[in-house]
Amino acid sequence: MADHLTLFHISDIHFGLEDNLALDWVKAEIAARQPDAVAITGDLTMRARHREFAAAATWIRSLDAPVTVEPGNHDLPNYHLPSRYLNPLGRFEAFRDLVEKRLEFPGLALVPLNTNVSAQPRLNWSKGWVSRRALDNCLSQIDALPAGTRVIVTAHHPLREAGTHGTALTRNGNHALDQLAQRNVLAVLSGHVHDAFDLMQDTPSGPVRMIGAGTLSHRIRSTPPGFNELTWDGSKLTVHVRNLEGISSHDMMVDEVPEDAMPPREAGEPVAPIGRIPRTDPPVD
């Protein structure tokens, strides 16, 4: 079993509205720190345009670390419905080998869970949906791992259902969490809401830890651009939210998964301290 692993959890880069200062910083951190893996949990692009995917491919291929990529809702072509229905991941061609790639280490594996569908019976298609096929694929990969292997699941949308039937964040998210709780899952990584979080979600089969990363773009958010540095020492997973403004992990994290991404802070406005719920593994700053 691996004694120590470092994972960089990046999300919502949104090429087309990317923050180049943040991207250069993260690339330099990867080169300097040499994490064991980089997990990118979706929304690489703004509009799924070819030029945005080309920029994403150039940046991702330049990273000096093993990478796994989850698609996000912004990465499916909304404005060209035939592509969305018939080949929703077609524009990932330049780095298709990294999309939903399982990464395995001694005693630990990163396993993908696609939370996107081509169409939904609700107006807001940006929200998540765990299809039976996607969940079965994820669970079968987990069940095929060597006995005792701990698992980190990578997804784009937080597996949280909230509000009314029509406004649920991720349809079938509760069922997916319950199935994951029955397995050796350490945490579910996601993005989508542009702010970091680290929460425990109760299910009938036990609690599941949900970890969200912020954004590396200029899109809406309530905290500065950042990413998560995860460390696994063989018994405990800790999260450090890295950012260019030197704000603590505690103050970078929201204490609930919001319905939508938060508006940006005004220039110079400090990040207010955010209350957190108690949990077993506090963040390390």
Rank of each mutant, 00 (worst) to 15 (best):
H4W: 14
L5R: 15
I10H: 03
S11W: 02
I13P: 01
G16I: 12
L17T: 11
D24P: 00
K27T: 11
E29N: 08
E29P: 00
A31E: 14
D36S: 13
T41M: 01
D43E: 06
L44N: 08
R47M: 08
R47E: 12
R51V: 13
T58V: 10
W59L: 05
E70R: 07
H74N: 15
D75H: 09
D75R: 09
P77R: 15
N78P: 00
Y79C: 08
Y85T: 00
L86I: 10
A94I: 07
L98D: 01
E100D: 09
R102V: 09
P106D: 14
L110K: 06
L113M: 08
L113G: 02
N116L: 10
S126R: 15
G128A: 10
L135I: 05
C138R: 09
Q141V: 03
I142L: 02
I142C: 01
D143V: 08
G148Y: 05
I152Y: 01
I152K: 04
A155F: 08
H156V: 04
H156M: 02
T167D: 13
A168P: 00
H175Q: 12
A176D: 08
A181N: 05
Q182V: 02
Q182Y: 01
N184L: 02
A187K: 07
L189K: 06
G191P: 02
V193F: 01
H194D: 05
Q201P: 00
T203P: 00
V208L: 12
G212I: 09
L216K: 06
L216M: 10
I220T: 11
I220V: 11
S222I: 08
T223C: 06
P224S: 11
G226E: 06
L230D: 04
W232H: 06
G234M: 10
S235W: 07
T238D: 00
V241Y: 03
I247K: 08
S249V: 07
M253P: 05
I277F: 04
R279E: 06
D281F: 14
D281S: 13
D285I: 10
D285K: 12
